[in-house]
Nucleic acid binder design. Structure first.
Lengths: 351, 351
DNA sequence: CTGTTAGCGCGTTCAA
DNA sequence: TTGAACGCGCTAACAG
């Protein structure tokens, strides 16, 4: 291994092959090699072959930093997600990476753990790393973050939402409408005492929109969400269990629980089994996202299917288009779908 | 927006602030600004303050490509995982990213979907992108991939395994031992007809080791794994359901099923409910990884807890050490833990 | 402790 | 269609 004077690991530089080496070895100029790499159509086939041969023989690998510096494009796209440790964003992440890698782009990621401060610092780091484009989740963040991005002048897109006040490009679905749809479904079955379990609302516009959607649906029927029927918990099964237990002790006891994130619903179902509360006999429960477990769990979960992978893929496509100069419209909101399964039913008959 | 002659998106360059601008504005030389960024201890506080002020006033953001080119280090670490869409690798990914970001490193990721060819091409791309270090999962891959990495001369580490034939540095647990431990647990309870559900074995040394571990445990008791008691399926719940159904029709019918990946076990449990087969009364089922559902599902799942996040975090720490010149040993294998829950019990009494 | 000087490896003019 | 020359923005010697 090679270390410099301070002991830091350093490429020995042995056998470091540059574009010049390739050029010399192929008997052409560096410019020609560069063209073979970037605009092969401008090079005569005979030369191209010789260059290709030299590249392979020398096992030449372009130097990304040098390319980026000279061309002002790094071929990297950044993404900052609330979490990487979840099937939720995992699908979108994978779809995004798959999409951009087809054009030779590389994905740089960071996770915020739902902290705006951490998001800010990651965005700054990524911008400094030289990313050509950026994907963020949701719209709610300090304006300075948007300023940094716009100052850099790179295209970006917000996912998981369908519109913003500031007219930022976004690719996602209507969270408000989805919350509304679930609540309407319950109302239509006769529920009048509906509760909601939400993730932390601060700095999370998706969670806020879903809650607002539920409230809108209730208001349509002249109902409202009592303060003690809204439980805010950190995302996860544990929060769902707790919330379920709490809600079952409320007066009046809710006959339906809308979960703003699917693990809450799983937690509610598990806790109901522990408590001996029948779902949907005594209380209905709905989820949000339609993760793989929703269809398998007993009772199977009524939920909203959200276009997770699609958001990742379309965000990738959108940014690739922008990067190649197409002034593509960010498009209509993506569809969500109410999936009615066994966990929701009519409320129990009074008394 | 700004486009160049070919229509490709391009930074307008308006207001692009360079280190030189900062230097001029602060009345110092570029070198001093550079030192403030990289080795602040070498700069007199008075100057440091002036430079800092200029940086903030101009909203200067360093240019990663230029830094990387001049310093030969990109401050990026690459990771190639089989999948990003799973809690399995998600935890490790997040831990890895969190760890390296504390030192200002950025994480570049790619997913292979368990394809060796795709892994090769991603590794090549990442190497060309200029990553300073690399994380890969498992050891089994064409030698040329290792050659590319070694040619680049960057540190790397293999995770999810505890040793390799080729003496590559790795951070993980003993898959063979874990498979063996689960099988022994079942054997100790009296099972003699044990089956296994495995993910695709080709190009997956973790899966192979687990299977080998199970075989070793069986051999210790003079038993073996009949060919029709080994079911290979793509990872996922669906595979587990199928495998369970198949195995229940085998003669002799197995009294215990070792699942090499946890979703198989969930699938088996769901299918058992659909088929009316009692777990563990008629057949025991074990998982692998101890994901969050394992403790919640009914019956709760006997499984092996694997150090997923720890592998990500330790891989990050290991690489950071290497990058800062410490010749750290990759260390002992990490611990796994057999977690016995309700899904395993003694075999049913014969006839 | 600070400034001066040379590149890092490549893309991209421009002229041939 | 190809080559020569320049510079992208920064770090790392070296000298002071």
């Amino acid at each position: 291994m090679a270390f410099d004077s301070e002991g830091a690991f350093r490429d020995p530089g042995y056998a470091r092959v540059t574009l010049e080496d390739v050029a010399r070895s192929a008997g052409v100029s560096p410019a020609t090699v560069s063209r073979c790499l970037n605009t092969p159509s401008l090079v005569r086939p005979a030369l191209k072959a010789k260059v290709q041969e030299a590249i392979e023989r020398l096992e030449y690998l372009p130097n990304g930093a040098a390319r980026a510096l000279a061309s002002q494009r790094s071929r990297m796209i950044g993404a900052v997600f609330p979490s990487l440790d979840s099937t939720l964003f995992g699908g979108a992440l994978e779809a995004l990476q798959g999409e951009i890698s087809t054009e030779g782009y590389t994905l740089v990621v960071a996770a915020t753990s739902y902290s705006a401060a951490r998001e800010r610092s990651h965005v700054q780091n990524l911008l400094a790393s030289g990313i050509d484009a950026l994907v963020l989740v949701g719209a709610e963040r300090p304006p300075e973050v948007y300023r940094m991005i716009e100052r850099k002048g790179i295209p970006y897109v917000l996912i998981w939402i369908d519109r913003t006040e500031g007219a930022h490009p976004c690719i996602g679905f209507d969270n408000h409408g989805a919350g509304q749809a679930v609540a309407r479904h319950l109302l239509d079955m006769g529920h009048r005492h509906i509760a909601m379990v939400s993730g932390p609302l601060a700095e999370n516009d998706r969670a806020k929109s879903r809650l607002a959607g539920v409230r809108t649906a209730l208001a349509e029927r002249g109902l409202s969400l009592p303060a003690d029927h809204l439980i805010e918990r950190p995302f996860g099964v544990a929060g769902g269990r707790e919330a379920f237990r709490l809600l079952m002790s409320r007066q009046p006891r809710p006959t339906a629980i809308v979960c703003g994130s699917e693990p809450f619903a799983y937690g509610a179902i598990f806790e109901s089994q522990a408590m001996g509360v029948a779902i949907p006999g005594e209380v209905s429960v709905t989820g949000f996202d339609d993760m793989w477990l929703a269809a398998q769990i007993t009772p199977s979960l009524t939920t909203v299917r959200t276009p997770q992978r699609q958001m990742g893929a379309e965000a990738g496509r959108y940014l690739l288009s922008r990067l190649s100069g197409k002034e593509i419209a960010a498009g209509r909101p993506l569809d969500f779908e109410l999936v009615v399964r066994a966990s929701s039913g009519p409320p129990p008959r009074e008394g």
